[in-house]
Structures are given as C-alpha cells and as structure tokens.
Amino acid sequence: MDKLTKGPETSRRRFIDILLGTGLFMWISSLIYPISKYLVPPKAAILYVNNVEAGTMSEFPPSSSKIIRFGRKPVIIVRQRNGKFSALSATCTHLDCTVQFKADTEQIWCACHNGYYDITGKNISGPPPSPLAQYIVVVKDDKVIVALEELT
C-alpha cells in the first residue's frame, strides 16, 4: 500500500540502496584484498639471529675461515688445523674494522691497526681494548651452524 502510493520516494530509496550496496561491496573488497594477500605466506623465510647456517662441512677445510652474516653483524668462523671450529664476532673492538684469520699463526688479525686476537677471541696485542664476542658452532648433519646459545 505504502510503496504503491509513494512512487518517487520508493525509487529514491531504491537508488540509495543501490549506492549503499556498491559502497559496501567496494568497502568489503578493500578489506578482503589486504587480508587475503596477508594470508599468503611470503617466499622469504624468517631470518632468525639466534642461529645461522654457515654452510656445509666441505666449505670448511682445516685452516680456513669464512665471514658470515649473523643478523646485522658479521661473524668469522674459523676451522683450526686440528679440525676444531670457533666462531667470533668479526668486528674489531678497536675501531670496528672487520678482522681476518691468519692461518699460519692461527690468530685473528685486524689489518687496520695491527691488532691480534687469539683463537678464543682474546685480545693479545695491538690496540684492541677488549676480546671478541664468542659464538657457538654446532655441526649437524654436515651443516655448520653458528648459534648464540647451545642448540639442543
């Protein structure tokens, strides 16, 4: 009854409903789009900085070293002549240069101001004021893993 008698009112109402419907549709799409995108996991994996894979055993012959990225910091992994691993912060404690491994004396050396550390990271000569931080090396299934704490 009401609808039949008030023609213009009804069409006006229908027009608003159509506008509202499209608006709601767009709005819901603008919500669903980011959410559905969010649900798809990205290809990149999470970078954990409590342990990092440094490579396989074959990349570490005795008397060799490699500098890897551990979070934001470089870490030097050394394999000594006797086959033992050690991993130390690769940032010299003097003026932040990157240190290197001297295979002949089995020491860690910073070229910038001739600073020496022993294989445990202790500063033994030159300007470095403090030792290099130590990391833990774990060999698991042929993989060399550097960790902040002992992996169990």
Partner: peptide, 17 residues
C-alpha cells in the same frame, strides 16, 4: 629467540603485514 624476528618479518616481508 623468535618473537622480535617474527614481528619484523610480519611488518617487512608479509604483504600488508
């Protein structure tokens, strides 16, 4: 060990994270 990294992952790697 993982909380900070996973939040960082969400905000930097996940689409619309």
């Amino acid at each position: 060990a993982t909380a900070f990294e996973s939040v960082k992952f969400i905000v930097s790697k996940v689409a619309f994270g």
